[in-house]
Design a protein around this nucleic acid. Sequence first.
DNA 1: TTAGTGTTTACGCTGTGCAG
DNA 2: CTGCACAGCGTAAACACTAA
Length: 277
Amino acid sequence: MNQAQHIKVSLDRQATQKISANRLRLKTSIDVVRRLSFQGCAFRGHDESSESKNRGNFLELLSLLASYDEKVGNVLKSAPQNASYTSSTIQKEILQIYASRVRNVIREEISDRKFSIIVDEARNNFDIQNIRGQGYDGASNMRGEFNSLQALILNDCRYAYYVHCFAHRLQLALVAAAREVVKVHQFFKDLSDIVNIALTSSKRYDELQKAQAAEISRLVSINELAIGIGMNQIGTLQCPSETRWSFHLNSVTSLLKMYNATSTVLENLKNAASNYS
DNA sequence: TTAGTGTTTACGCTGTGCAG
DNA sequence: CTGCACAGCGTAAACACTAA
């Protein structure tokens, strides 16, 4: 009897192929879920039907992978209708497995030590008696709910000190403190005026861009600036924002970078004004 | 034939952005 | 402020397929 043609050998071969095809389908779905969740992207689309032009990130990324890998493309195309491993239920199941692994690692790390929570939503098995701080984001439509939440947690653990939106408070404190120092206050006021004057008129904005382009070519010609793809873009000035302290730094940095160009624009403005008087 | 598992489809809900 | 459109998620019901 020819062993290679035996019915059992043939069936075994088919089963092995089926298993490896299923595994490849599942592996592709797992990779897509991992990538999308790592990037913080939404999975679903508004219209996920086969005629849709945008079937959502999960399905679109899957078909992109399939288009680059013949093996993946083939197993996805030939998937049985009850085991394509691409439905929203499967996506969610894979995600839940990842979530529980992440939770386990965090639990192991914290163990029975004291901890604080900063959350949008949390369900876990930590001992509430070990909480030593709680902080929530301060969206106005959530505050009422969170106030009651922090009160409830305080009931269970009186050491769970509540800090409302710490980053925002730090920002407000910085702005208030800086305002008290006359020199700092004057500096940021002048900065704001300079930026506003140079940016608010589209005519002056064009002048600024032209002056900065000229400045960049000048610096390159005297070897003060390195050249390369994507380098030396013209850029623009940025306003210092009261609500985000980091914008103050951005604003100062942008003015330093465009100092000569900004001076040129302001000089031009001064000359134009003196011609009218 | 049936129970179990997974997919598809349709629809509802929430949040957001935009125009009037 | 209101109404509308849209994105994205959840879910129920119908359907497809498989293993026992």
